[in-house]
């Protein structure tokens, strides 16, 4: 089923920058008809967009408000501000350590996923080999396997490897479950780079690896940013593996720390909100940075399988 899809869409998407082609500025005056097509009445854009923006932003604002207003206050404006909640979660509730652990896991997962997926994606995009079909099928099928239901056998594996309470176990588990989609995405991006570019480099005497590094890799930038940021955000956010494999307090990650705050006997809402802000900041920064790449990245590779 994927094969059919790939072939159909390959013809349409021109390059790795992927289908973001705006029509060239037209020199002729636009007719009334064309304008009518383009110009949706403004209120039909701004009204629903405004309502949806409220739905999106109020929850963020709410968290921010609870994080910075003094305990016991019911003010709806975040003024006067206080740092007491941040101070509390960062120092007393060990969020400083959780933050460091989450960062380590996130960056390690990003690097491992990107490298392994690049190799696999290149093999799928550029070679025919005997087990290719089976490998593709395995990648697709793995999408149906719930990580949550693999917890117990995975726990036993890591126990046998003596990796319980080591951040490595979480990095491996996150990488493995991130791989299938990443390989599929990256092979889509590589297919979009015409093989003639590589062939030209070979003729010039480049080895396969050097041709890949100097010709293909730079063109894969949007794709790699999409895949890498996916891996980072996923492992930063993911909760169950860390909850299961890391029981020592100084090994835990931010989502586990948040869950502890939620589960506390009397929930300290200010501390919870401050913890939430700490959890949100890195992904919001990553997201703001990659947001544009995400659309082009997806239109170039994602839906094509």
């Amino acid at each position: 089923m994927t094969a059919a899809l790939v072939e159909k869409k390959d013809a349409r998407t021109p390059g790795p920058s992927g289908g973001n082609d705006l029509p060239p500025p037209s020199s002729h005056r636009r007719t009334k008809r064309e304008r009518a097509f383009d110009d949706v009445p403004r209120w039909q854009i701004y009204l629903p967009l405004g309502i949806y923006l409220l739905f999106t932003l109020i929850p963020f604002y709410w968290m921010f408000l609870f994080a910075v207003r003094p305990a016991g206050s019911t003010s709806l404006v975040p003024w006067p501000m206080t740092g007491e909640h941040f101070n509390k979660v960062w120092n007393e509730r060990s969020f400083a350590i959780f933050f460091q652990n989450s960062m380590l896991v996130g960056v390690a997962t990003l690097i491992a996923t990107t490298l392994v997926a690049l190799a696999g994606g290149y093999a799928l995009a550029r070679f025919n080999f005997r087990i290719k079909g089976a490998f593709m099928l395995a990648l697709l099928c793995s999408q149906f396997i719930p990580g949550a239901l693999m917890l117990v056998p995975l726990f036993e594996i890591f126990k046998n490897l003596q990796m319980i309470n080591s951040l490595g176990s979480v990095v491996i588990a996150e990488t493995v479950f991130q791989l299938p989609l990443s390989i599929i995405l990256i092979s889509g991006f590589i297919k979009n780079v015409p093989i003639s570019l590589e062939e030209a480099a070979w003729v010039d005497g480049c080895s396969r690896f050097k041709a890949f590094r100097t010709v293909v890799l730079p063109l894969l930038r949007p794709g790699l940013i999409a895949v890498g940021s996916f891996a980072f955000v996923h492992s930063w956010n993911h909760f169950l593996f860390a909850l299961m494999f890391l029981s020592e307090q100084d090994k835990q990650t931010i989502p586990v720390g948040l869950n502890t705050l939620i589960g506390a006997d009397s929930v300290d809402l200010g501390a919870l909100a401050a913890g939430g802000v700490i959890a949100a900041v890195p992904v919001v920064i990553v997201f703001a940075f990659i947001q544009k790449w995400l659309i082009t990245g997806f239109s170039a590779g994602a839906v094509k399988g």
Binding site: L49, Y52, T56, P59, W62, F66, H238, P255, I262, G275
Partner: peptide
């Protein structure tokens, strides 16, 4: 551009963080 960034932003938020935020919104006292 800014509207896109804002409406898409919850995509990057984890399940636990979503719970955190909505517990703050749903709690009965504040």
């Amino acid at each position: 551009g800014i509207s896109r960034a804002m409406v898409f932003s919850p995509w990057a938020v984890s399940g636990v963080l979503t719970s955190t935020i909505w517990i703050l919104l749903y709690n009965s006292s504040t």
